[in-house]
């Protein structure tokens, strides 16, 4: 790099003796790259990071937009109160249950679909294109679709489920014991295709000769899958897992549209709770505290995955 830069600067100087070229190329290159990156960095800091920091600040205040006169500094009281708040603990439990179950099922189901789509023929290419439709539909509309289908009174599916006594006559969304599971089902419907796509890309990147060699050596399909396919697929699996875990943890749209956190608090997730507190009740201090705890949750998830990926990398390289 330096070599070429030196080279460039000397030819540059020889050709164009303008003011700029008295500065060495390496320096000008540095300035140029900084100038290219700066607008994006500045923008994201000003309108992204700055509000986030402001959010930490707000969370230390008793601050309600409807009662501005009562605004005062309360330190970590908002957080302490949240820990004592049963609704908040419920929201954490719901979010964790939602995340674990939807991601686990999406991963297994997605892997099976990816294996079925592995061979590169026309049929599979058409399937892959069509299967991605749920991923592109507005999440809000996805919520509405299932709300409509599962209505117990006249929904295409919900009516029969209730008639045959498979579900509570109130319908899946209106029964506390089934509402969260139904939301998990919606998430699976919406995002399994994405997981399948990522895993399929992983499968297609596998070294074909290794799989052939295993087949020649007489390894059974299951053995090949377990000792070759699965370990080599780890990067793709980790990518899908990371993406989906973080997204599922932040679930908002489908819950907000279908149940709004109810019945009772049975589907209240962290995001829904924060949005309701902050933008419906204008309880900025409390909402910011909830949002910050969610932020911390995402950070912990991301850190876990990074550590796991490093660990696997080390093991793979150590061999």
């Amino acid at each position: 790099m330096t070599n070429i830069a030196m080279n460039l600067s000397s030819t540059d100087q020889a050709r164009a003796p303008s003011g700029l070229s008295s500065i060495p190329f390496a320096t000008r290159r540095k300035f140029f790259l900084v100038a290219m990156a700066l607008p994006a960095v500045a923008y994201v800091i000003a309108l992204g990071v700055f509000p986030l920091v402001k959010g930490i600040w707000y969370s230390l205040y008793e601050y309600n937009l409807l009662k501005p006169a009562r605004t005062h500094f309360v330190g970590i009281d908002n957080y302490v109160n949240l820990l004592k708040d049963a609704d908040f603990r419920g929201a954490i439990a719901n979010t964790v249950i939602f995340t674990v179950f939807s991601v686990a099922i999406e991963l297994v189901f997605g892997f099976i679909i990816a294996l079925a789509l592995w061979r590169d023929d026309r049929f599979n290419r058409v399937c892959l294109t069509l299967i991605l439709i749920p991923v592109t539909i507005t999440p809000l509309v996805v919520g509405l679709i299932f709300k409509g289908l599962l209505l117990a009174d006249y929904g295409m599916v919900g009516y029969y489920l209730a008639q045959w006594g498979l579900t509570d006559p109130r319908g899946l969304f209106a029964t506390p014991s089934t509402a969260l599971a139904t939301l998990i089902f919606i998430d699976i419907w919406e995002w399994t295709p994405l997981v399948a796509l990522i895993l399929l890309a992983g499968l297609k990147a596998l070294p074909g000769d290794l799989l052939e060699a295993a087949a020649v050596d007489g390894a059974t399909a299951w053995r090949t899958f377990r000792s070759i396919t699965l370990p080599l697929m780890l990067p793709a699996v980790m990518l899908a897992l990371t993406l989906r875990t973080i997204d599922a943890f932040r679930v908002f749209d489908s819950v907000f549209v279908t149940t709004g956190g109810g019945p009772g608090n049975s589907t209240n997730t962290l995001m829904v709770y924060a949005v309701k507190e902050g933008l419906s009740f204008f309880n900025i201090g409390k909402a910011s505290a909830i949002a910050n705890i969610a932020l911390l949750g995402v950070a912990i998830i991301a850190a876990c995955f990074i550590l796991m990926i490093r660990h696997f990398d080390k093991r793979a390289n150590g061999r």
């Binding site: 990156a37 992204g48 990071v49 973080i246 995001m271 924060a274 933008l279």
Partner: peptide, 29 residues
Amino acid sequence: HPAAMGVAYFFMTIRMVPAVAALIPFYLL
């Protein structure tokens, strides 16, 4: 420059931030 990789990761992390955490202060702004 070693900082470039750091900035790239910074951008990746921003994409993972829960929307509400930014939305409430952004709304007030």
